[in-house]
Write a protein that binds this DNA or RNA. Structure first.
Lengths: 336, 336
DNA sequence: ATATTAAAGCTAAACGTATCGCTTTTATCT
DNA sequence: AGATAAAAGCGATACGTTTAGCTTTAATAT
């Protein structure tokens, strides 16, 4: 592989000038041409290791997700990647496979790779607080939390308004006469799951409907758990007349079960799903869906991180709550 | 951040000795202890950029996939990552989002990051031949093709025996009396899709059943395309009595459509699916499934790449064809 | 005790780039 | 034309490692 030195020799210019050319400094037009020619002829490529060693910037952003197979996250990832690429950044994508140890280890790995910034969808970090994670503070590597929060955490973060999301959805059941409403929620230690549950309970409170805890089924955000939660709900002695699934996977699992039971939506059971992606798009007749602003979440995270990586520490920590939308379809039966 | 120099100073030893310690050379026990203490006290971390600059090895493997949201690929990815990590390698994961340009660009990106090796699930590379991709040859970066092949390509590769996979599956339809068998295949330019179609046609030939090309529906390996292909098949004037979906996504799309139509499997339509992962696991009653040896494919790819990265170029190119298994369930109706 | 060998440590030179501070060249203004 | 400012180029140094080649120390055998 040829180096900047070879280019200098080929053109008769100094190393410093070549470096200037590469990094966009002032170089005479006729020299620019000669350098360009040399680079082409010698097939020169910048040695990133050397550059990083010198500049202490890797121009790499680490993206750490709970799972790679969850389309909600991979969609976010795709958006981020495209946006950051325009700014000259590359992405190292990591998943911690919903595992506590792995999450910490991957975070260490990213820091060790000297990424310039990190975008994280957290789950277990530090037990409760990411500030406790010393490597992160020492390095002063900017970090933005995506989609989920952590109790007591002082971080920039971009979240959906989960509580109002389920509130608005469940409210639709209520105004259509439903009183026994099942909800399939995620693990309570994940902030989104907790908040979605709160919205559900708030509706009940506001409309003076007692909460039957048997109607609250806890899954783990996986397809299988949605499936069995739905099975549990529909096989109760006094089953709900309506059910909401609170993420894409559990929604799909739940619907799969309902279909198997040959139940019609909304004929036999009213249903609201979550996230308008992949399978939820092809369900027919279409179901009412809580749409999260995926695009906005991803873009905002990327932009905040860019700001921080440029050294702009103003108004830390930034917290955004983005509104969701309820995509109405005929999946709610009017009863009584 | 402290450097190796600081450790040398702290311990009174030379830089070279510290380096030896870090890289597992011979160091006196009492010095080992002092060094360990210094590293701990100064919170020393190896500067990877400097190391890479010197050694010219990044200990990073690039994994390039068509898509991140396809569980078949992300499962492979998870297996690879775990195995390579044990050998001290890290993974940079990339997706080209089923886009030709992106595939080439991401491959360039990986090479530019100086990865020590690449694992690729190819699609369009070079139009037909990856050997045409000059950057790859110049760098002599080892590359192993996973799951898919490319015509005329001289590469190590690990493939499933796709042709016999669909042969065995479709044959089950035939021996149960089916003559009109629909198949939902992927894009013909993808080797797996082509081979799976060949297996389908070979059964027809061997059992002297004419091939009705209207029963061969081409999707793009997506859920939506499986859904509409199934819709097309079932709405024919003379529909098939059995259908096979040839990947996980199209299988799910097809089944979703069948469920919507309130068709029972195998009562109204016989069906064989592909890949025992995620949703296909929870379908109930369970359907017959072509199981690909995901674990073996992933492990073999990783091991071959490890060999190549160690400089072992023997018997190039290695080509493996791994057998699939037909997981039998009651989803095939016996007719006539 | 001495010779021989192995182990442990050290010095110094790279790896390829960016950048500070300086000099030279070129352009601009009066 | 001369003074001034701006643009372009250069030399030298540093970034933090690894490693070849050498020296010193310790261990082993005679």
């Amino acid at each position: 592989m040829s180096t900047i030195k070879d280019i200098a020799q080929y053109t008769g210019l100094s190393i410093a000038t070549i470096s200037k050319y590469i990094n966009g400094g002032n170089v005479l037009e006729r020299n620019r041409e000669r350098i360009a020619e040399a680079i082409d002829a010698l097939d020169y490529k910048v040695n990133l290791a050397a550059r990083i060693l010198k500049t202490r910037r890797t121009m790499i952003v680490g993206v750490l997700l709970p799972s790679l197979t969850v389309p909600f996250f991979s969609t976010i990832c795709a958006i981020i990647e495209e946006l950051l690429k325009k700014e000259g950044y590359s992405i190292i994508l990591c998943s911690y496979y919903d595992d506590r140890e792995e999450e910490l280890e991957k975070l260490r790995f990213l820091l060790n790779q000297s990424v310039d910034g990190i975008l994280l969808v957290p789950q277990y970090i530090g037990g409760e607080d990411i500030n406790a994670f010393s490597e992160l503070r020492e390095r002063k590597t900017p970090l933005v939390l995506m989609d989920r929060s952590i109790p007591g955490c002082e971080c920039d973060r971009v979240l959906a308004d989960n509580s109002n999301a389920t509130y608005d959805a469940v409210e639709q059941f209520v105004v259509n006469g439903h009183k026994r409403i099942g909800i399939i929620i995620g693990p309570p230690e994940i902030s989104t799951a907790y908040e979605r549950r709160v919205g559900y309970e708030r509706v009940h409170h506001d409309y003076a409907i007692p909460v039957d805890h048997a109607l609250i089924r806890v899954g783990d955000y996986s397809i299988g758990s949605g499936y069995s939660a739905m099975s549990d709900l529909l096989n109760m002695e006094n089953p709900p007349t309506a059910v909401i699934g609170t993420n894409h996977e559990m929604t799909m699992g739940a619907i799969t079960y309902a279909y198997e039971r040959k139940m019609r939506i909304p004929g036999d059971i009213s249903f609201i799903g979550y996230d308008e992606i992949q399978l939820t798009k092809i369900i027919n007749p279409p179901i009412t869906i809580v749409m999260q602003p995926i695009q906005e979440i991803a873009e905002l995270c990327a932009r905040i991180l860019l700001r921080r990586m440029q050294g702009d520490d103003s108004s830390f920590p930034l917290v955004y709550r983005l509104k969701t939308n309820l995509l109405m379809h005929e999946s709610i039966k009017r009863i009584r």
